[in-house]
Design a protein around this nucleic acid. Structure first.
Lengths: 342, 342
DNA sequence: GTTAGCACTCGTGATATTAGAGTGCTAAAA
DNA sequence: TTTTAGCACTCTAATATCACGAGTGCTAAC
């Protein structure tokens, strides 16, 4: 069990290490806490804390840095989410308070705002697309050459794609196809829709609108795209600030990974409702063992859950980040509730 | 005037420097050309070339690297666009040959392909939006809560935006507003449209569809967005490969710049029809004085011109890059011609 | 005009040197 | 028993020193 003084020392050490980035020695701690003891005493305590595995040295005569266990303990027991400033509150309200138009916009703007507020990298994941149900399908003839297909889901996403109007198609064919889709596909999950598109629908099309097969392929691709879950990421360049000595090769793989929806979904826990913090190796990803990942979820009314994640250095300003995330997520859930109520 | 041997030496030096990245000495040139002369002779020639300003030393006893003037001369007189491989040809055809759906897609895929083929950074700019004319406007009610606004231009761009349906609006209001827009705005340039939106239209709306003013603001924002010219950029991460020792601060500003449409448009010459190569300081941009920028244009049928640019190191593989760009641009122009003909 | 030969230059990478921050340990003080 | 002053020790980071080699320019002979 840790003594009170050890707690103060561990807390100070992590705070100091986070703000300076350097290993922290006994004198520094003495000068930055109100502990009434000499540096020698603090050295003894540090040695004790090291034996217990909360801190470690970078070399035999260096100051200490927190170990993974130290961070873990800090986050679980010492760290307090920090109150956010009025400024921060204002920007959150500015983004989430105004009239929201579309799910994708909200997610995009949220990622942007969070990366700005934290100065880390922010990732916002939409609810898993697998469970989305098709609520509407429309084909709209734009001009002689172009048709727009629009699909809507119960998760609030609206997607569209424009494609060339095949030559042998006229308006009435569009109506026929639209009707086929609305009769047979609306209400099903997108996964089911794609399956049906491959099995049943080609038959129907051939029967009722035989000249629409060409167009059918384009429509199929819209649906395939729509089953891919959406991710929004912002502040990728901040990695350059908080991870200065990363080599270009690693950086390149990292950035490639961060652009890959699948990678992000498997990285980020979408189940746990509270805050999940994974530090270094805990993330279990070879590119991220020098990073920390804070994950939390938000509710899309009662249609499902999305996730928010902040990627930063292990020596992250956890207190501030938690504070921001907490306020943000509550406001986001509220905003989405209203969005679906209206 | 340069002697024949000097030309061979300059050419070899630039090729060797490009492929190795190192300064090139007299022996290296001797071993990599079929010049029948000793290294001493070549040293004399190098010394001569240096006096004329085509090459320079990195320090008093180093090998030579091309100077800006050397590159200039090479590009203007020595470099030959290289034949592209069958593989390259195939990938270009795969992207540009298949049925193309939308301008934005073409541009996006073009950037992607070019960055892959060259291993540099590819930028594709659409025709300047200022000259685009509105050819179609549609309002589509998606469901009780959402309306989609769609605008089309004569440059082939189709943009849309979804926004909340104001509560006091019904289908017939949508029709009214659509009619107002079609009567008064179609045929005008987007710039004019935005002007009119601020002057004339509010009056009309107030007169014929007074409860639509709220919606009007949303529509206005769609148009404002549409006047922003489109850029597509790909292979940004390749900068990490060809510019290894760039510091993070510069890199961050550079990446920020490359995401800014305005910056790119002012950087890239959209007027000169041939190939324009700017090297180092010639680019006249403090972030790019260690880069080369190859620019060329493509015709969007007879609706205007867009631009393609490749950003790479000054020691670029000019021959290959020119070869690829030349083939690509011809095929692109052809593809776009068909796109508008059909 | 060409070339062999040689002294000279300078960057690169390896090896010493040094200063400073921090440690652990000991023995005395509290 | 806990705290603390004191000191020897360790290791890093920065700087200086050195040797090597690639490359040069110059000279004198071919």
């Amino acid at each position: 069990m840790l003594t009170k003084r050890q707690l103060i020392i561990l807390d100070a050490l992590i705070r100091l290490n986070t703000s300076t980035g350097n290993p922290i020695g006994s004198k520094t701690i003495m000068n930055n806490t109100d502990i009434k003891a000499s540096s020698a005493t603090i050295r003894n305590e540090l040695s004790e804390l090291e034996k217990m595995g909360f801190i470690k040295k970078t070399h035999s005569s260096s100051g200490r840095i927190p170990s993974l266990k130290g961070y873990r303990f800090y986050i679980d027991h010492l760290m307090k989410p920090q109150e956010v400033t009025q400024d921060t509150l204002n920007s959150i309200n500015a983004v989430l308070g105004t009239h929201v138009q579309q799910m994708d916009d909200i997610m995009h703007q949220s990622a942007q705002l969070l990366s700005e507020l934290t100065q880390y990298t922010a990732i916002v994941l939409g609810p898993k697309a697998e469970t989305s149900r098709l609520t509407g399908f429309k084909l709209l003839s734009l001009n002689a050459n172009h048709v727009m297909a629009i699909i809507q889901t119960d998760k609030g996403t609206i997607e569209n794609k424009v494609f060339r109007m095949p030559k042998n198609i006229n308006e009435s064919d569009l109506v026929k196809v639209t009707n086929i889709f609305n009769q047979h596909l609306v209400g099903h999950t997108l996964i089911e829709v794609v399956q049906k598109l491959q099995r049943d629908i080609p038959l129907l099309i051939r029967k009722y609108a035989s000249n629409a097969t060409e167009m059918f392929l384009s429509i199929e691709s819209v649906f395939k795209e729509s089953t891919e879950s959406r991710h929004h990421i912002s502040g990728k360049l901040n990695i350059l600030d908080f991870s200065e000595n990363i080599d270009t090769k690693k950086l390149k793989s990292l950035y490639t990974m961060l652009d890959n929806s699948g990678d992000l979904y498997s990285l980020i826990d979408q189940i746990n409702d509270g805050f999940v913090v994974k530090i270094g190796d805990e993330i279990n990803h070879n590119l991220l063992n020098e990073f920390s990942l804070i994950t939390t979820t938000y509710s899309v009314s009662n249609y499902g859950k999305g996730a928010i994640a902040i990627l930063g250095p292990t020596s992250m300003a956890y207190g501030e980040t938690f504070g921001v995330l907490d306020v943000f997520r509550k406001q986001l859930t509220r905003t989405l509730l209203e969005y679906y109520l209206e």
